[in-house]
């Protein structure tokens, strides 16, 4: 099946890479998380000692590893889109599998981190720091899960020889996945490093 098709002009304001709807979602998500982070920093300014002590209970090593894992999976996703656009479906599938693996590793590491907190009896009601920690990281984790479902569905649709998805669909899925990267890049330093 021919994959190369007429591409919309991405310089047109109504046709950003991935489509208009996903970009509206991305902006709304960034604003939502941004307000959460500003709220977190505001309360941190009110109670700096509490926030510093609480921050020290987070596992910065695991947070750093998770950052690298998400960045590598973002690279795999971008490579998958590049290959698929050029007609290299097999390589695109290969890269998509690595992207999903990256998402899976992120979830495993995050789950271990949550397990550590549970066994230390640190929950959402502990203090304001951990209320924000659980809400923001939990909400982000849900986005990673949703991204994996979207990419998994695309992989499922791409695998048979006689079926394909459009490049636009893959670009939309990729934009959603990169949004998870972008949000984590803001969450990680704010929650794990600055207080």
């Amino acid at each position: 099946m021919e994959l190369i098709q007429e591409r919309p002009d991405n310089k047109n304001i109504f046709y950003p890479p991935g489509g208009l709807m996903i970009w509206i979602i991305i902006l709304l998500e960034l604003v939502t998380f941004g307000l959460g982070l500003i709220g977190f920093a505001y309360y941190g300014r009110m109670e700096p000692a509490l926030f510093h002590e609480s921050r020290l209970q987070l596992n910065i090593g695991l947070g750093t590893v998770n950052t690298v894992v998400l960045l590598v999976s973002g690279y795999m996703m971008a490579s998958a889109v590049g290959c698929y656009r050029g007609g290299g479906k097999k390589r695109a599938i290969h890269f998509l599998k690595w992207t999903l693996l990256g998402g899976g590793i992120f979830i495993c590491i995050k789950s271990f981190e949550y397990y550590e907190k549970f066994t230390s009896s640190i929950d959402m009601e502990d203090n304001m720091f951990f209320t924000f920690y659980w809400l923001l990281t939990g909400f982000h984790l849900v986005h990673v899960l949703v991204g994996m479902v979207i990419l998994g569905w695309m992989l499922y649709k791409m695998r048979p020889v006689d079926t394909d998805i459009s490049v636009d669909d893959l670009e939309s899925g990729a934009a959603f996945w990169h949004m998870c990267d972008l949000i984590w890049l803001l969450l990680f330093p704010t929650l794990y490093l600055i207080f």
């Binding site: 310089k11 950003p16 890479p17 973002g74 889109v81 670009e171 990169h178």
Partner: peptide, 21 residues
């Protein structure tokens, strides 16, 4: 600041924001 640089790189290179309006 480092987070901002990383955000820029992911958005413009991986997400292809450079191609957008």
């Amino acid at each position: 600041t480092v987070a901002g640089v990383k955000f820029y790189l992911v958005a413009f290179e991986f997400m292809e924001l450079a191609k957008a309006n």
